[in-house]
Amino acid sequence: MDFTLSDEQEMVRDTARELFTKECTIDFVRSAWKQPTLAVGLFDRHLSDWLELASADAVDLMLFALEHGRAIAPGPFFASLLAAQVASATGRDLSGSASVAVSGSDGTWTPNEDATKHFVPSAADVDEILVVSGSPDAPRLALVAQAEVALTEVEQMDRLRCQYRVDTSGVAAGESIDPAAWRHALERSLVACSAELIGVGRWLLDASVDYAKERVQFDRPIGSFQGLQWMLVDAALELERAAAAVSYAAMCIDADDSDRHRAVHGAKAEAGLAARACARTGMQVHGGIGYTFEHGLHYWLRRAYAGDAFMGPSSHHHDCLAELLFDT
């Protein structure tokens, strides 16, 4: 077992970090909150090439998604990346941006026959929609132009990545796909989401540690108060454990290890809960300044909670894990 990154993997991480540092600054994020079309520009100009990660190692996918979360990148890239997983696993080609319509009202990516699909990310900003239906053992896939479905925005905390209810009743039934290929795309998508949440938590923790070093009250940095140190240590512990669980899940997928089914569910649950914990701690450590809209901490807080819910909340992934532990 080796948790260190290879030279190529380090390059993926560093390139991603440089890209986001340059193109996705906090000022850009603030503008994109008010004007979502800016985020589409970010996709077109800087991110669309990275959809190739869909057929790369899961570890590379994880490294990129983590930086994406750290930068709180807005727009249709992430939805497209998940769609590209599904396309790549099932031998389809996407022309550009896309999203996956599969969830029922429970938010989980369990193929079902409901014509209404829920929690479809960025649906208004993409070219194509992958409609997945059927059942987990007999999934079907239809690739349609976005204009062929009816969209309703459902407002949720994270306005940087809107979600939609999609009416697919006008879409033809689609072709059968291999359940194992669907499962593979699902697991890689879970790794991407988990990694993004780790990036979100990482930003929150780093920003809070930096702030605790700078902010002076009672003539000393607030980070010198043990009460505050222990809060930050607890958040760091949760985050590190979750980050390791996500790395492990990615490595399991690349090695086709039999532990991968358990590992991905554990990773998603851990990552969601860790990001939420970092958000709460970050808010508390920042005090009044963190509570202002202008500061921007809330962008990460919002994605931590919205991200925990996306592709099924932690409780769902714990249930899936419990099923694997007890029932198989």
């Binding site: 938010g107 459902v154 949720q156 925990d308 819910a309 909340p313």
Partner: peptide, 28 residues
């Protein structure tokens, strides 16, 4: 609320999004 935990849309959220609103005010 399961996957609806972050939904703030008054039209569909549990109790018109009362809990998500309380979440933000509760942080203060």
């Amino acid at each position: 609320q399961g996957a609806g935990l972050a939904v703030t849309d008054r039209a569909v959220a549990e109790s018109k999004g009362r809990w998500q609103q309380s979440f933000f005010t509760g942080l203060a």
